[in-house]
């Protein structure tokens, strides 16, 4: 077959339509189940866990906030939120620092790199078990803001570090050299040159680390101590709650995740636009 290089719009081949249909099915597969529990969370008061809808109500959302009905939703939500925010701040700062460190070779750099990869692939339940055992042996009480925080960081750091690698691999050092030639100190170079350029990626790291922590279950299992985080609470509910309040909870937390993603994307776009205006 002789065809010219497609500089102009050529007709879509048949394979495009087949693949597009496949992609559409994939998206349906991803979002369909979420959509069903979203709809079912508005189930009427006498409705069950499956269709048909037995009326329409906000009953189950109200139920969610009654303490005795479904455990401690408010408390666990607040805890997960706080933990997620701490994990987010720590991950952004530490990954950024590590990213800077990795721009030069130093002794032990490959050790840290392989630790990060190991942290990513070691099954989460092993982290949970290990930290739980460690605290048990040294007779410290596991707490969500100590042991669970550490467990979550082992999960978010690898993502943060890998994103930083990707960023700094494409980062042109001549901007910094220019800043230095103009008399900027190290800190000024970072503040006025490096940070604005990697800002959008740091927002990415922030969103990654917050959502990964907010949804983390296995690593929290043995490390949260006496007080549950939200995923632990949800997990507990799956075994003893048989009403659509489970779906209401799913809708609320998924909605919350969407808000977080929206904020992150919005701020990236905002940063881009501001940068565009300045240029």
């Amino acid at each position: 077959m002789t065809r010219s290089i497609p500089k102009t719009r050529e007709r879509r081949p048949l394979s495009f339509y087949i693949l597009a249909a496949f992609f559409a099915l994939f998206v349906l597969f991803l979002y369909g189940p979420m959509l069903t529990i979203f709809i079912l969370s508005f189930q009427g008061e006498n409705g069950g866990l499956t269709f048909p809808m037995n009326g329409f109500s906000f009953h189950w959302f109200g139920n969610l906030f009654e303490r005795q009905a479904v455990g401690d939703f408010g408390g666990s939500f607040a805890r997960s939120l706080k933990l997620g925010l701490i994990v987010m701040v720590v991950t952004v700062v530490v990954s950024f620092m590590a990213g800077l460190a990795f721009r030069r070779r130093f002794r032990g750099d490959s050790v840290i790199f392989y630790l990060a990869i190991a942290s990513l692939i070691v099954p989460s339940i092993l982290i949970s078990l290990g930290i739980g055992l460690l605290f048990n042996i040294i007779e410290w009480q596991p707490q969500w803001f100590t042991s669970a925080l550490g467990a979550h960081l082992t999960w978010t750091f690898p993502f943060g570090l890998l994103i930083m690698f990707a960023v700094f691999n494409r980062f042109d050092p001549s901007y910094e050299e220019a800043a230095r030639d103009l008399g900027a100190s190290n800190w000024q170079t970072i503040q006025y040159v490096v940070l604005p350029m990697v800002g959008p990626s740091l927002i990415g790291v922030a969103m990654f680390s917050f959502t990964l922590s907010y949804d983390e279950f296995a690593r929290t299992l043995m490390t949260a101590g006496a007080l549950n985080t939200l995923p632990l609470e949800i997990y507990g509910m799956t075994t003893n709650v048989t009403t659509p309040v489970l779906y209401a909870l799913g809708t609320v937390t998924t909605g919350f995740s969407f808000v977080v993603i929206g904020i992150a994307l919005g701020s990236v776009l905002l940063l881009r636009r501001r940068k565009g205006q300045k240029a």
């Binding site: 840290i112 960081l153 570090l161």
Partner: peptide, 24 residues
Amino acid sequence: SSYFLISPMAAIFAIFLVIPLLTI
């Protein structure tokens, strides 16, 4: 400065990854 910059990450990996795995 590289060692300074990497130390927080190294410390967290040591305390919450390496030592727990050795404990196991």
